[in-house]
Amino acid sequence: MSIKTDVVVIGAGAMGSAAALAVARSGKSVAVLEQFPEGHSLGASHGTTRNFNTAYQQPEYLRLVSEARLLWDELAEETGVQLLDLVGLVNHGHEVALENTRQAQQEAGISSSFLSPQAAMERWAGMRFRSRVLYVPEAGRIRAANALTALKSAAQNREAQFLYKTTVRNLAVLGDDLVAVSTDSAEYRTTRVIVTAGAWTQKLIGGIVQLPRLVVTQEQPAHFQTVSDGLEWPCFNHNPEPGVPEDDFWYSPIYGMLTPGEGIKVGWHGVGPVVDPDARDFTAETRQMDALLRYVREWFPGLDAERFDPISCTYTSTESGDFILDRFGPVVVGAGFSGHGFKFTPAIGRILADLADGIAAPKLFQAPHRS
């Protein structure tokens, strides 16, 4: 069976759903093909919460996160679903980096301020701070599961089609404005295909377009239980301080947030073992988990390091940590979100739709300079 549609999106996670919504808003027909069932936990978009963190130094990211904030609010108003909990976010650790971040935020019109470690511990008694804390009040967490539902609902209201359990078997570029996308039951003929396949990106299109190196890792944060119900919990990022020997056991910066009903999510960032997304064991690597438990014992007096539930997810990362948002002929690619992309989701959807229309992404996200 042959089906014609203006745009095919491959991958119905956060980025694919946002791209579908942006395409549908422009009046084009769009079909979203997803190999797994709706709500699966095999990729990078599942889970209840993500950080909405505006602590960036690059102007491109600050512009993108400001746009995303407006688009999240618009989507919440349209769907009647709360998507952001602006409980604030604390950044601590590497003070020179925090000074640069605050200056960049001020230039971008994003409010933030420094607190002494003593003042921060008085306010957030469940956490320990050794140096000044950069507090961003208009930040917090995204209700990630709700966001996926809202993106899909808004796209479907504009006649986007979502097809789950629909694996792409072949993708053939037949011309500048023609791509054939084959599944087990149909062949889709389209002028543009947007690939948001996460950990499966290289497997799907590695032989069609030349992508920068993408590394897929299995990450293993965990939800920890609190020792008291009366504590206030902001979202948080903690960067190691150079030259502090007692921090030598760290694997990477730490991130986390309260996930209501599940605990406080705490995790290393982007240092899990390299995996094939089709051959994961979902088992936490022992040494990294032991180090995470040590970190929680040392830095979170409000958490019980012995009561936790491990989480397994994938990161698909570039060497720089910057995203790939680019077009190769009729194939548009959104990939390499490197564990920090979710907050930008609706803005990334807009960029992917623009790319399909021939509008270039910001240079930082274009692929050639990474090849």
Score class of each variant (00 low, 15 high):
Lys165Ala: 08
Ile348Gly: 03
His92Tyr: 11
Glu138Lys: 08
Val332Tyr: 11
Ala291His: 00
Ile194Pro: 07
Asn91Glu: 14
Ala155Ser: 13
Ala20Asp: 06
Met121Tyr: 02
Asp73Leu: 15
Ser116Lys: 00
Ala12Arg: 02
Gly11Cys: 03
Ala119Asn: 09
Arg287Met: 01
Pro253Ala: 04
Val333Pro: 04
Thr196Gly: 10
Asp354Gly: 10
Pro117Cys: 05
Ala199Ile: 07
Leu42Ile: 02
Ser317Glu: 05
Gly88Ser: 11
Ile208Thr: 14
Gly13Trp: 11
Glu232Met: 11
Gln35Pro: 02
Trp268Glu: 02
Glu241Trp: 01
Arg102Ser: 04
Ala186Glu: 14
Leu89Gln: 06
Arg307Val: 12
Arg169Asp: 13
Thr196Ala: 15
Glu107His: 06
His269Leu: 03
Pro260Asn: 06
Leu98Asn: 07
His340Val: 04
Leu75Ser: 12
Arg69Cys: 09
Arg63Tyr: 02
Arg128Glu: 02
Arg287Pro: 01
Ser45Asn: 12
Glu74Cys: 07
Val90Tyr: 08
Ala139Glu: 05
His40Ser: 12
Ala367Met: 08
Asp229Thr: 13
Thr54Glu: 14
Val168Thr: 11
Asn100Lys: 08
Ala22Val: 10
Arg189Ala: 07
Gly126Leu: 11
Pro117Leu: 05
Thr167Leu: 02
Glu246Ala: 11
Gln161Lys: 10
Trp72Asn: 07
Tyr56Ser: 10
Asp276Pro: 00
Ala24Asn: 14
Val32Asp: 08
Asp354Ala: 05
Asp176Ile: 06
Ala144Asp: 02
Ser41Asn: 12
Ala335Cys: 05
Asn91Val: 06
Ser41Arg: 12
Pro277Glu: 08
Ile208Pro: 02
Gly334Ala: 08
Asp354Pro: 00
Ala145His: 10
Ala154Ser: 15
Arg132Met: 04
Leu21Thr: 10
His340Ile: 00
Ser131Phe: 06
Val23Asn: 03
Arg327Pro: 00
Trp250Cys: 02
Tyr164Pro: 03
Gln106Ala: 06
Leu134Pro: 09
Gln161Asp: 14
Leu292Phe: 03
Asp326Val: 14
Glu138Leu: 09
Ile348Arg: 03
Ala14Ile: 11
Leu364Trp: 02
Gln103Ala: 15
Cys313Gln: 08
Thr79Gly: 09
Ala335Asn: 06
Asn239Leu: 10
Thr316Gly: 00
Val215Met: 12
Arg69Asn: 09
Leu21Met: 04
Leu355Cys: 09
His223Glu: 03
Ser26His: 08
Pro234Asn: 13
Gln57Tyr: 07
Phe308Ala: 03
Asn170Gln: 14
Ala14Arg: 04
Val216Gln: 00
Tyr251Cys: 00
Ala68His: 09
His223Asp: 01
His269Lys: 04
Val32Ala: 05
Arg158Phe: 08
Ala160Trp: 14
Gly39Arg: 14
Leu163Tyr: 10
Gln225Ser: 11
His238Ala: 09
Gly16Asp: 12
Leu70Asp: 10
Ser113Gly: 11
Asp278Lys: 02
Arg189Glu: 10
Ala104Val: 13
